[in-house]
Design a protein around this nucleic acid. Sequence first.
DNA 1: GACTTGCAAATTGTATACAGGTGGTATCTA
DNA 2: TAGATACCACCTGTATACAATTTGCAAGTC
Lengths: 245, 245
Amino acid sequence: METEKRQQTQSLKALMGVRDLVFSGRARPGERLSEIAIAEKLGISRTPIRAALARLEQEGLLELIPSGGYAVRQFSRDEVIDSIELRGVLEGTAARLAAERGVPPARLRAIKDLLRGLDETMAERVEDMAFDRYVELNAQFHEALAGLAGSGIIRREIERVTRLPFASPSAFLDKQADVPEFRRSLIGGQAQHRAIVNAIELREGARAEALAREHARLARQNLEYVIEQDRGLISRVPALALIGE
Amino acid sequence: METEKRQQTQSLKALMGVRDLVFSGRARPGERLSEIAIAEKLGISRTPIRAALARLEQEGLLELIPSGGYAVRQFSRDEVIDSIELRGVLEGTAARLAAERGVPPARLRAIKDLLRGLDETMAERVEDMAFDRYVELNAQFHEALAGLAGSGIIRREIERVTRLPFASPSAFLDKQADVPEFRRSLIGGQAQHRAIVNAIELREGARAEALAREHARLARQNLEYVIEQDRGLISRVPALALIGE
DNA sequence: GACTTGCAAATTGTATACAGGTGGTATCTA
DNA sequence: TAGATACCACCTGTATACAATTTGCAAGTC
């Protein structure tokens, strides 16, 4: 019908449009993002585009050009590593606080269900894994973990860091990056998932924190594998499109 | 000359203007911030105001009203505590990484100079302390610490959290909140400063991290003192203007 | 008297007009 | 041929106009 979901649409369309422009690699790092060009391409006026650009700059995806305007930001290897480290620290904090403060039974049950679901995706041979399903459940697990401490502040901050694609728990879980090396890392990853939840349940804050931090290191390992062993993969992992240098 | 430093001014004026409106308490938590009203008050058009509002929402200072527009956000006691905790975690990470990665001698010297400066503000009797100078140097110390790991990502994140006034290391260091209880806490605080730098210099990452976290707890102690012992102080500590509930 | 309904004012979201400034190019000169 | 200068096109920052909602009030009805 003519309901035409226009509610809030222009702004959202602009935000998603620009994000996609960057993530898809159609806008290369360093490239200037012209308001007019984008506006024409997306079929909306400059105003919502401008708002989207400003917001994405806040998110760290774009950078200000001294003479005005915005450009796609380029991230160095070190910045990517620090972002992953940061995610580990924040997820570790969420885990620790959840352990220290205690988690309502319903929530604990919910995250345990996710654990079980993840288990079911595993198989004897890595080729037999239900990769897509793992990716989906893994994202849900990390989301649940971020909220487990019951702190909106922490949850929000994790969400923020995670918006940088290469810092996301799903950074190396992509159909395009379906590499045996990465698949193998999921086995250990799932063991860490279990350990984290166990530590939280037993109210072992320090252990929960350390485990969550170490868990994030999986992403770092995968990153280093890509950079040092198989640079060709860089272009196949979408989350790595912003890495330069 | 009529050069009239207008460079970038409207946007900046809008940002500072709205921030000040909130921090000064002229806009109460929950209150809607009307673009037109602010635009008239500040003598600029709606466009830069709008940008400022959107940005401050991203910073967490404002919240979106479902039907459109922005309102001053109100923070619960728990959210304030979590923000302080978060700052502790992030400063702890900066300290740990600085210890693990090592700090260039010049930077180490610089932060040690700050330590010495802070020492000089101390006195036998708390009434004799150079309070203003301490406040100034303390802010510099925390800024230096945030940058000590040489990570722009970490530095930026600390800066972000710190923008929430009650999460800042200077939250309870204000002329209006010049209370003996707070002054006394500075003595132990300075000891922690020294210990943090010492741990970093000795490359003791875990110790540096734990100390920095504990150091942030000073702010939490002060907060709890205000809430549980002397609620009248709330109105005298500007950083606490946003606390509700 | 309380609730509903309709209207009017106000407010946001979006588009566009306008001015100042930046960068690039082409031409002219040495 | 290389460098400098002047001009032109484009782009951003800001203001304002316009349209669609939303909110608040008032009047009318049950």
